[in-house]
C-alpha cells in the first residue's frame, strides 16, 4: 500500500525518462543475449557459449588477464594504501597534488600511456651516465612485459583505487585511531595490519573489483604491448565470429554484476562492523 502510494506520487515525466533510460541500457543487452542464443538455425540454445568456452585460447587469455588483474590489485594496494595513509596522517597539504595525479588517467588516453612506455622501455636500462647495462629492454622478454603492463594498469586503476582507499580512510578517522593504537604501544606495522587494513577492507574490495573490471577488458595496452590477454582476444574474436563474442560479452556482463553484488554484500557487512556513531 505504502509503496504503491509512493510510486503513484512520482511524476509522470519522471516515469517516461526512467523508462527511456532503462530501454537505452537494456535493449542492446537484450539484443545481445537474444542473438547469442541463436547460433543454430531455429533453435534457442547455448551453443555459442559452449563454443566460446571450449576454445583453449579463451581459457588461456582469460586466466592470463586474471593473473594480471591480481598483480595489478596487489601492486596498487602496496603503493596506494601507505601513500593515502601518510597523506591523511602527516601531509594533508599534499592531498590536492596527489588527487590531481590520480585523475590523470582520465585525461591522458591509454594509447599515449602505452606509447610512452614502449618508447622508454624498449631500450636497455643503464646506470645513469655510464654504459653499464642493468637490464635488457623490458619489452623484449616476457616477465619484463608483464611488469610493464601491470605498471600501466596500476596507473589506469589509480583513480578508482585511490579514491576508494581515501574515502575508506576518511570514514574511520585513521588519524585518531592511529594515535590511540600508538599510545597503547603498537608499532607502525601492527597499526597498518591490525587497525587500518581491517577497517578499510570494504573500500579495498570495491577498489579491487573496479580495477579487476578494467584490467580484464582492457584492449589498448594489451594489444600494443603484444601480450596474450583477454581483451585483445575478445576483440579479435569479434572480427571473425558473430555469435561467440555476443555470448562472451553477455558473460562478462554477468561477471561485472556479480562483482557489484559482491561489493554490496561486503560493504553492507562492513557497514555493520564500522558503524557510524
Amino acid at each position: 500500500m505504502n509503496i504503491l502510494a509512493r510510486i503513484r506520487r512520482i511524476p509522470f515525466w519522471s516515469w517516461i525518462w526512467f523508462i527511456l533510460g532503462a530501454l537505452y541500457f537494456l535493449l542492446p543487452l537484450y539484443a545481445t543475449v537474444n542473438f547469442s542464443l541463436r547460433m543454430e538455425r531455429d533453435v534457442i540454445g547455448f551453443k555459442a557459449y559452449v563454443r566460446a568456452f571450449e576454445d583453449p585460447d579463451f581459457l588461456k587469455t582469460f586466466m592470463y588477464s586474471n593473473m594480471l588483474a591480481l598483480m595489478t590489485i596487489l601492486a596498487s594496494i602496496i603503493l596506494i594504501v601507505p601513500t593515502a595513509y601518510w597523506i591523511r596522517l602527516r601531509l594533508p597539504e599534499a592531498r590536492r597534488v596527489v588527487e590531481f595525479i590520480t585523475l590523470l588517467p582520465f585525461v591522458v588516453p591509454a594509447i599515449i600511456l602505452v606509447f610512452g612506455l614502449i618508447r622508454i622501455y624498449s631500450s636497455p636500462i643503464k646506470i645513469p651516465f655510464t654504459d653499464t647495462t642493468l637490464l635488457q629492454p623490458l619489452t623484449t622478454f616476457e616477465i619484463g612485459t608483464d611488469i610493464l603492463i601491470v605498471a600501466g594498469y596500476v596507473v589506469l586503476g589509480l583513480p578508482y583505487m585511490y579514491r576508494s582507499v581515501d574515502t575508506g580512510m576518511r570514514t574511520v578517522d585513521v588519524r585518531t585511531l592511529t594515535e590511540a593504537a600508538q599510545s597503547l604501544g603498537a608499532s607502525w606495522f601492527t597499526i597498518i595490519v591490525k587497525v587500518i587494513l581491517p577497517n578499510i577492507r570494504a573500500a579495498l574490495l570495491s577498489g579491487a573489483l573496479l580495477t579487476f573490471a578494467i584490467v580484464v577488458g582492457e584492449v589498448t595496452l594489451a594489444s600494443f604491448l603484444g601480450v596474450p590477454a583477454f581483451g585483445p582476444y575478445l576483440f579479435l574474436l569479434g572480427q571473425h565470429r558473430a555469435y561467440e563474442p555476443a555470448a562472451l560479452s553477455f558473460a562478462s556482463f554477468l561477471l561485472t554484476w556479480l562483482a557489484m553484488g559482491l561489493i554490496q554484500l561486503f560493504t553492507g557487512g562492513q557497514g555493520q562492523a564500522s558503524g557510524a556513531h
Binding site: 585511531l177 590511540a180 581491517p198 577497517n199 558503524g275 556513531h277
Partner: peptide, 10 residues
C-alpha cells in the same frame, strides 16, 4: 582517552 572515543571499529 579521546573526545571522539577512537575505539577500533573492527
Amino acid at each position: 582517552v579521546f573526545q571522539s572515543y577512537a575505539l577500533f571499529p573492527n
